[in-house]
Write a protein that binds this DNA or RNA. Sequence first.
DNA 1: CTCCGATCGCTCGGTTCCGAGTATTTGATG
DNA 2: CATCAAATACTCGGAACCGAGCGATCGGAG
Lengths: 183, 183
Amino acid sequence: MKNPLGMAVLGLLLESPLHPHAMAATLRERGMDRAFKVTTGSLYDVVRALMREGWIEARETVKVGARPERTIYQLTAAGQEEFTRWVDRLVREPQAEFPKFLSAVSYLGALGPAGAVEALRERAERLRASTEEVRREHLSALQQVPRLFVIEVEYAERMAEAELGWVEEIIGEIESGELGWPE
Amino acid sequence: MKNPLGMAVLGLLLESPLHPHAMAATLRERGMDRAFKVTTGSLYDVVRALMREGWIEARETVKVGARPERTIYQLTAAGQEEFTRWVDRLVREPQAEFPKFLSAVSYLGALGPAGAVEALRERAERLRASTEEVRREHLSALQQVPRLFVIEVEYAERMAEAELGWVEEIIGEIESGELGWPE
DNA sequence: CTCCGATCGCTCGGTTCCGAGTATTTGATG
DNA sequence: CATCAAATACTCGGAACCGAGCGATCGGAG
C-alpha cells in the first residue's frame, strides 16, 4: 500500500460510502486530480488492496438496469485510524522524489547555451499560463469552501513560483555569460 | 520509453561505452541518483528498451573468469539525436507531477491543528537536515567540476527552500489562528 | 592459507500500473 | 422518435517496476 490514491479513497469514504466510479468522479469534481493521479485501472486495484488490508469493506452491490454492478464500499474502524496515520506519515517524512525536470536539468548542458535558453523560455511561458489558470480556479474555489480545504493549492502555487523564479534566473545567467558553458 | 533513467543511460553512453553495472555505479558516484531513480531491475529493463528502439547497441560481451558476462553497450547515431530531443522535451514541457507531500497536504485538516503543527514541525526539521547535507556535498562538488555540471542541485536546493518556507509559514498561521480550522 | 565481508554483475518473478476496450443508459437535438 | 454524444461502471492484459536472490571473485585479517 504505497499508492497515495489509497489515501484519497479513505479520505472520501470518511464522508460517505461510495462506489469506485463515484470516487473518481468526486475527486475530479473537487480538482483533487491535481494532487492524486486518478486513473480508473489503478483505482480498482487500490480499492482491492484496501479491502485486503481490512481498511474498507463492501457494503452492498447494487444493480441498476443492465449496467455493470456498483459495489459500494465503506470505511472500517481500522481504515479510519490508518487514514490519519497515513496523512501524518506523509507530512512528517519527506520522500525522495524524482521530478522529470530535475532529471532534464541534470543534462541541461547537452542543449548548448542557445538551445537551453530557448527551451527554458518556453517552459517559463507554459508555467506562467498554467499557474494563471490554477490561480483563477483557486480564487473561485475559495468563494465556496474554507481555505483549509484547498490549502494544497497554495502549496502548489508557491512551488510553481519558485520554479519559475529559478528558470528565469538561469535564463538570465546564461545570457549574461555568468553561467559558463564548458566543453 | 518514459522512464527518465533511459535518458541518464544515453547521457552516460555519450561519454563512453559501458555495461549496465558500471552505469549504475557511475550514476551513484556522481550523485545523480538524487535526480534519477537508479534501481538495478529497472536499469536492465530500460537498457533492453533502448536496444529495441535502436538508440543503443551491444558492442561486445566480455567474460572475465566465471563471473556473469558483461555486455558493453554504446550509443547509436539515432541515440545521440534522441538524447538531445529527450532533454529538450522535458525542459520545455512541464509534466504533471504528484509529489506525496501534495497529496498529504490535501488532507492536512485530518490531523487537527495541534497534530498538523507537530507533524509539520518534524518535516521542517528533516528538511533542514537534508538540505544542509546536500549543500555541503554541493559545495565540495563545485571544487571539482564546473557549475553547469551540478546545476540541478541548485534547482533542488531552491525548491527545498521554497517548501521549507511554506511549511514554516503555515505552522505560524495555524498557531496564530489565522488559518481557520472548520468542522 | 583460509575465512569473511564487500564487490561484481545480472536474473527472476511477483506486484503494480494503467489505458484501451466493452456495454449500457441517459439526455439533448433535429 | 431517431440519432448521437456524454455519462455510467468496470474488466482486462500487456507493460513497467523493482528488490530479493544468486553465484562468483577479490582483498585483507588472523
